[in-house]
Amino acid sequence: MSTSAPLRQAPETSMSTPRRRTPAVGTSRLGRGLLWGLCGIVGLWLIVPVLVVIPLSFTGKPSLKFPPDSWSTRWYANFFADTAWTSALWTSVEVALLVTVVATALGTAAALGLTRARVRGLGAAQGAMLAPMIVPGVVLAIGTYSVFLKLQLVGTLAGFVMAHTVLALPFVMIPVTASLRGFDRRLENAAASLGAGSWTTFRSVTLPLVAPGVASGALFAFVTSFDEVVVSLFIQSPYLQTLPVKMYASVTRETDPTIAAAATMIIVLTTTLVFTATFFVARRNRAQ
């Protein structure tokens, strides 16, 4: 429910309000020391566990022993030589890109409709669209599996795209709705009074102004699809599976460090994305 709204705010508020440093607990030196000590430990605890996979991916031995005692890049070579891994990666990227397009289009349209329409049942519609965030993954997964068996969508690209799209919809709608609410409608009226049609107004006035919301929605949609495991586990086939599904199978079946190479590449990709996004948000805030 409130998972992504604070997320979007977090980097922004951090830039906008330089606050006076008046620590409350920390008035005593002991209290302040405790607070920062705990904070440091928790910070490390959040980040360090993820990092162990990076050295592991360069191990020289075919085991998941940590720390490795010899080094090589053979697991990366193995990843790109094994069609099971590369086709899983390709499927994941393809599905995630398609989901980004479909979910962003559907979610943005729906957010526009929800903020502007004056009809009955809007609250119910909005609630329904946020519901995929709270329904337990496995429950949706078995239902989707059963429906896909009937519709013959198991193991198809279209099946993956649609299953992931409904999961990504709320993550598009929340940021887009937020940016639409903080939007001055008189700008649209001004454009219309100058003779712009509704499509021109939307394209040249509304869209550029809500673009940050749409962009963060698109990023959410991509990541939601790229990370999805539970539903994908059910709707995969031996011929079409996504990268997380391949990783899951690899962890349960074998001790093959190729998975560490795959994990490291995902971490590098994610980190780059987050840093770039944060950089742009910071720059935009400074410009304002």
Binding site: I47, V50, V53, L56, P244, A260, T270
Partner: peptide, 20 residues
């Protein structure tokens, strides 16, 4: 430090815990 794990794939982080 909060956002990086938040964005990192759940599968990757669970795998890291298997190793740890």
């Amino acid at each position: 430090l909060v956002l990086l794990p938040f964005w990192t794939s759940l599968m990757v982080r669970t795998f890291a815990w298997v190793i740890l």
